[in-house]
């Protein structure tokens, strides 16, 4: 499935924030988690993650630190802040509203299996 790039871009912020809400992480592992969550359907250009992370940093949604774990190379770790959690909650509300509206109209017009509407 080829997801439109606007949709990929719009979902990027909540997705990254939600992954960081699971625990601190670094770029490469965030991307792996995105692939895993979407079953490989959400294709990001790897490099694009970093400007996004830097924007979240500037907005104060995440903090960052360079660290070298005992077994591994030096990486830049990101952790979510309280502001970030608040932003994530707000994004969640918006996405739930959007998916509910879309699900409703698709179920009514019988376009898609009801599973989508219940999501």
């Amino acid at each position: 499935m080829n997801i439109h790039k606007d949709l990929v871009a719009a979902s990027a912020t909540p997705l990254v924030l939600a992954i960081l809400a699971e625990g601190e992480s670094y770029g490469y592992s965030i991307l792996k988690r995105v692939r895993e969550l979407s079953g490989g359907d959400l294709e990001w250009t790897d490099g694009m993650l970093y400007p996004l992370l830097h924007r979240l940093l500037r907005l104060g949604y995440v903090t960052t630190e360079w660290r070298t774990p005992p077994e591994g190379r030096r990486r830049r770790y990101y952790a979510i802040t309280d502001d970030g959690r608040a932003a994530l909650a707000e994004q969640q509300r918006q996405w739930v509203t959007v998916t509910r509206a879309l699900g409703g109209v698709w179920r009514d017009s019988g376009w898609l299996p009801t599973a989508v509407g219940e999501a």
């Binding site: 790897d46 694009m48 400007p51 500037r58």
Partner: peptide, 17 residues
Amino acid sequence: KRMGDLDTLSREFAREH
């Protein structure tokens, strides 16, 4: 290849910074 082409990447960085 997965990293993306440099022009687009640089522009994204520029937009943020």
